[in-house]
Amino acid sequence: MLSRIAESLFWIGRYLERAEDTCRIVEVHLQLLLEDPLVNQEESATTLLSVMGSPVVETPDTAEVLRALCYDGASPSSIAAALGGAREAGRRARETISIEMWEAINTTWNSVKGGRLQRMRPASAFKHVRERCAVISGTADQTMSHDEGWHFLTLGRSVERIDMTARMISTAAVTAGTSAWANVLRGCGAHHAFIRTYGGVTTDRDAAEFLLLDRLFPRSVVYTLHAAEVALNELDQHVRRVGFDDEAQRLLGTTRSELEYCPVDQILENLPKRMVGLQRICAQVSEAVTSRYFTGAEAASWQEGN
């Protein structure tokens, strides 16, 4: 498979997941503001924007959050930009991704571009984006061969999911509101699964444990780390007798083991810092994958580049 195409697929996975998760994060944020009128709007907007790595303006309000994280295509952390990115990456890989998947991506982009997302009621817009992302990934799973390309797609999705889940957990860890964790669970689509697993009487600790360590819930950090490892393993086909030579695999493996074998209390002790650590790992993994699998394209275009 061409490196360039592989890279596109990796980024389709990342951008789609970014769009979906951003949408979930903003939804949680708005819900929190509504439910608890004591929450300082400006402060929590600042928190959110900085968690999302978006430039923080002075005295941000909800409108600014929506602009920067949802509507504004020129703001790199926005849903619009992520969906645009997915669509452009899709365009470059059109001959590889299935027709149905391309159509799903393109329809999604058409439905949000040019301020269309902004014209929907926020609640409907979030639902729309979530559903469209589910349609795309469902279509991809069902209409693409589960070959190399598909593994890159899964890898991209998983890396992004780990990163975004970490950001989501960061928001809960720094919010004093009583319903912060419930909302983060809801944001991860995990509330139902969580209540069914732990019953109705739960603590914040249970929630953090579930989102980080659950082995069966597909958006938990450990599950997703494992999914990324599996994808990398499939990509690296040669028989391995000792260790791992792949940097990305090493990073993911150590991170997962560290989480899984660490006593829960220790993990929770310094949650915000750990979450930043996770985000860092994701950046490193992405870098490692890029230099191992995609650099061919870089070298080729470098000579022609500006």
């Binding site: 990342r14 929450v39 968690v51 790595g53 720094v174 919010t175 004093a176 930043v276 985000q279």
Partner: peptide, 15 residues
């Protein structure tokens, strides 16, 4: 006061 300080984060990379 809701937040216990502005959390750090790692900037997102992009394609």
């Amino acid at each position: 006061k809701v937040s216990v300080g502005i959390p750090e984060s790692v900037p997102m990379v992009e394609l």
